[in-house]
Design a protein around this nucleic acid. Structure first.
Length: 867
RNA sequence: GCGAAAGUGGCGGAAUUGGUAGACGCCCUGGACUUAGGAUCCAGUGCCUUCGGGUGUGGGGGUUCGAGUCCCCCCUUUCGCACCA
């Protein structure tokens, strides 16, 4: 013992300790997962990162949380799969390559190599043998195979849809590349343009995706609600207006058939066929439509537009009254929802109300709320609530909900229309006009039409030699890529140049992790079905709708292909909040780094121009705002354990986390306190076995109770992901131990005391291990354990130790706290009440009053109500 | 615009089921100690106070013996909105 004691570091040295244990985990492949039918499996998944170059605090938070869960489940005896990989296709690589005149792949793989080292320095318990990058030709190949399967199934098709078009760069822009309606590079005003694109038929699964939310009780309610609204299932009436003097009709869909008699005009989208027809012989209409198209494609941009309309001159004929009503082209009507045309009811729809006022159109009230008669001429805003029908022919005096049903019945009976279900959800556009993505394995043949690339020819590889500094999709300019012969008729044909949305890759990466080395197909059913579903998925709340909905859909589509057996891919979901930090800005120099400002005591000034610095709100850490903290620096300075500790302690995972340098110091100091306490007791614990029963001495009893209360609390807190309170509980335990040590000299401590002490110290170490794995392994080893702590089972509470002899009861008079009393745990309600009544403080409060009522909550409080 | 959340001391947060508001940590104040360390240890720390107590969880109202927690209205902030990932 003495030799190793001499060699042991007395001071906490995270750099040395962390390198030691990380090396060991790597060499021994401690966290390699193997399928084992005899053990309960646990699939822990964190959202894989985009390899942008360096890990950021959001990653650190995400992966620290995932690692705690994985390590905790491991200690609970589960066979844990905890993989990691790279979401490696995407625009940033293309942009970086263009800037540096290199290849996106070179940039991407260099980033992966760097970030892998950064992740390893965090001490994460991954099975690195399952690592994959979605741009690996292997992964891309199997994704193309899946694409063709789904295409054959009819789940992938082509149709026209709108894109953001930069007329100067002649390229499609992502919504994030549209800044204030202009292209980010050219500065040109962005236009909406129609393009033929590939789509996935997610709407075929809309009902199942919606109804399936009810079977995901362990998903945050907020995510389920958001997906529910996103899918937006509604039931309503679909019917067609006849158009005066025209053969064609105008189909509309409404969820408010009850307001039918209040229709005073119709509005159609700028892309509506009827709008095009008008534009054909009316230059003003064409101009208006072009104006409408001078906006981006994002729903937000469309909705925020100033509401504008153009009278087509056409008259629609009301199906029940025969009344002729004008048809407007409106810039706020979406072609992608319903039929692209709406019946407008200004009295009962706010948007229609505003439009009607702007265009002097009649407003006809057909629903009267009880007790406050409305009139179209004096209406201040649309009435969207319930009421009684008026001005509605035979439907008058019905309540509007009944009227809805009646009108649908009437339309159905007369063959005018029918009840229809609509969804806000649109089919998933998967085409991207970009180079750095997975090629869509299709060929356009002038004779045969669209022909899939034969599976034997997969994968379609991205050409290495590429000029990214061209207009539009670089692949369009590469004849070596595009010029092929048709697989069916062998005539000259053209290869599809669209690449896939990167959400495709993230829709099945968790399946490929299960069988990373499988070479006979995309998925090895046996292994995939062994590990699936993911038991715990952890990632940013920003993925609440898109990624999580697409992955659910893709999984169901693969299920129907017989490739997986579970209905849902992710059993439990934890969405973590953002990492934020104060922003510092200077009137002359914009966003400043903390090191670029000077502390004047009463505030900061800019280091360059000495103007006062404006301290902004906490904002999401972002490079553009210079408020990022580099995790690598933090880990180098304090070690991974401190970094993890701070991230987990500063806020519960679901909440946003505010970065605070002083808080990091606090985490660092606690780990040092723990380290010192163990160093202090170490020489005395040699040969001492941890207590298994509670000794008689009162102060030891209290100490052991504290130990087991902590075991109990930490276990429950980890189950509900309250890492911050779990840490607080261990802090309390360590504080209790330290206090005991200060009051009780170790040389006087007997065996029972040392046994309780060892149990306390070891419990603190075990409980903290999933959170701070390196320091706890080191301390565990120094306590004389040969077996690694990560193989140690999670501790169990001793029910005997949890029993307290006395409890504190709160005494209230009229609901206000007056005093507290200590009573035996097993006191009867009657004794408790009289103890409370006889208390001197209570007596003085009750003077001159009559007790009306006494409420006794056993184990908690007594409330005496007096007048 | 639509959708989803969140507001508690000087700060981050705790209060698990309607039952002690402020656990734990940071900051700050005072003290001790020194092998000067990224020190450490001890005490104090919501606000007001005539030291009895009063008051307090964004604001206003309500339910209840009792409300941070439940209900209604309002204010503020953040996130998502289909080609960022």
């Amino acid at each position: 013992m003495s030799a190793s004691e001499n060699n042991r570091e007395i001071r906490y040295n995270p750099q040395a300790i962390e390198a030691k244990w990380q090396g060991l985990w790597d060499r021994e492949k401690t966290f390699r997962a193997t399928e084992d039918p005899h053990r309960e499996k646990f699939y822990c998944l964190v959202m894989f990162p985009y390899p942008s170059g360096r890990i950021h605090m959001g990653h650190v938070r995400n992966y620290a949380i995932g690692d705690v869960i994985a390590r905790h489940q491991r200690m609970l005896g589960k066979n844990v799969l905890n993989p990691m990989g790279w979401d490696a296709f995407g625009m940033p690589a293309e942009n970086a390559a263009r800037k540096q005149n290199s290849h996106p792949g070179t940039w991407t793989y260099a980033n992966i190599a760097h970030m892998r080292q950064e992740l390893k320095s965090m001490g994460l318990a991954y099975d690195w043998e399952r690592e994959l990058a979605t741009c690996d030709s292997d992964y891309a190949r199997w994704e193309q195979v899946l694409f063709l399967k789904l295409f054959t199934k009819g789940l992938i098709y082509r149709k026209n849809s709108l894109v953001n078009w930069d007329p100067v760069d002649a390229t499609v822009l992502a919504n994030e590349q549209v800044i204030d309606g202009r292209g980010w590079r050219s500065g040109a005003l962005v236009e909406r343009r129609e393009l033929s694109q590939w789509f996935m038929r997610i709407t075929a699964y809309a009902d199942e995706l919606l109804d399936g939310l009810d079977h995901l009780p362990d998903w945050p309610a907020t995510v389920r609600t958001m997906q529910n609204h996103w899918i937006g299932r509604s039931h309503g009436l679909e019917f067609s207006f006849a158009l005066e003097g025209l053969a064609e009709t105008l189909p509309v869909y409404t969820t408010r058939p009850d307001t039918l008699m209040g229709v005073t005009f119709c509005s159609i989208a700028a892309e509506h066929p009827l709008a095009r027809k008008v534009a054909g012989n009316n230059p003003d209409a064409a101009l208006f439509i072009r104006e409408c198209q001078k906006s981006g494609t994002s729903e937000e941009a469309m909705e925020r537009l100033e509401k504008k309309g153009f009278d087509t001159g056409f008259k629609a004929i009301h199906p029940l009254t025969g009344e002729k009503i004008p048809v407007y082209i409106a810039n706020f009507v979406l072609m992608s929802y319903g039929t692209g045309a709406v019946m407008a009811v200004p009295a009962h729809d706010q948007r229609d109300f505003e439009f009607a006022r702007a265009h002097q159109l009649p407003i006809r009230v057909v629903i009267q709320p009880p007790g406050q008669p409305l009139e179209g001429a004096t209406l201040r805003e649309a009435w969207t609530g319930p009421g009684i029908m008026v001005n509605s022919l035979s439907f008058d005096d019905l309540d509007n909900e009944t009227c809805k049903v009646r009108i649908i019945e009437t339309f159905t009976k007369r063959g005018l229309g029918s009840q229809r279900t609509h969804y806000r959800l649109r089919d998933w556009g998967i085409s991207r006009q970009r180079y750095w993505g997975n090629p869509i394995p299709m060929i356009h043949c002038p004779q045969c039409g669209i022909v899939p690339v034969p599976e034997a020819d997969l994968p379609v590889q991205l050409p290495e030699q590429v000029d990214l500094n061209v207009q539009g999709n670089p692949l369009d300019h590469l004849a070596t890529f595009t010029d092929v012969s048709c697989p069916q008729c062998h005539a000259p044909a053209r290869r599809e140049t669209d690449t896939m949305d990167t959400f495709m890759e993230s829709s099945w990466y968790f399946l490929r992790y299960c069988c990373r080395d499988f070479q006979d197909g995309p998925l090895d059913g046996v292994r995939v079905n062994h590990w699936m579903p993911v038991d715990q998925y952890i990632g940013g709340i920003e993925h609440a709708v898109l990624h999580l909905l697409y992955a659910r859909f893709f999984h169901k589509a693969l299920r129907d292909e017989g490739l997986v057996t579970t209905d849902e891919p992710f059993r439990r979901l934890l969405t973590q909040g953002m990492v934020r930090k104060d922003t510092l800005s200077c009137p002359n120099h914009g966003w400043r780094y903390p090191k670029e400002v000077i502390d004047k005591g009463d505030g900061w000034v800019c280091g360059a121009c000495h103007q006062p610095i404006v301290v902004g709100r906490n904002e999401k850490m972002s490079k553009s705002k210079n408020n990022v903290v580099d995790p690598a620096e933090l880990i180098q300075g304090y070690g991974a354990d401190t970094a993890r500790m701070f991230m987990l302690f500063a806020a519960p995972p679901q909440q946003d986390l505010e970065w605070n340098d002083a808080g990091v110091d606090g985490a660092w100091r606690f780990l040092n306190r723990l380290w010192r306490m163990v160093q202090e007791v170490l020489p005395w614990l040699d040969g001492v076995v941890a207590a298994t029963a509670t000794p008689d001495a009162a102060e030891l009893r209290v100490l052991r109770t504290k130990t087991h209360e902590t075991i109990d609390k930490v276990g429950r807190d980890l189950e509900r992901f309250q890492f911050n309170t779990a840490i607080a509980a261990v802090m309390e335990l360590v504080n209790a131990g330290t206090r005991w040590l200060a009051e009780n000299p170790l040389q006087d401590a007997g065996q029972p005391a040392l046994a309780v002490l060892r149990e306390l110290v070891e419990s603190a170490i075990i409980l903290l291990h999933p959170l701070v794995p390196h320091i706890t392994e080191e301390l565990w080893q120094s306590l004389g354990h040969a077996r690694q702590l990560c193989h140690q089972p999670w501790p169990k509470t001793d029910p005997q130790a949890l029993v307290r002899g006395e409890i504190t009861i709160v005494i209230q008079v009229n609901g206000k706290l007056r005093t507290k009393i200590n009573v035996p745990t097993d006191i009867s309600q009657a004794d408790l009440e009289s103890a409370a009544r006889n208390n001197t403080t209570v007596q003085s409060q009750l003077q001159g009053k009559t007790v009306v009522k006494v409420i006794v909550v056993p184990g908690r409080l007594v409330n005496i109500v007096a007048k």
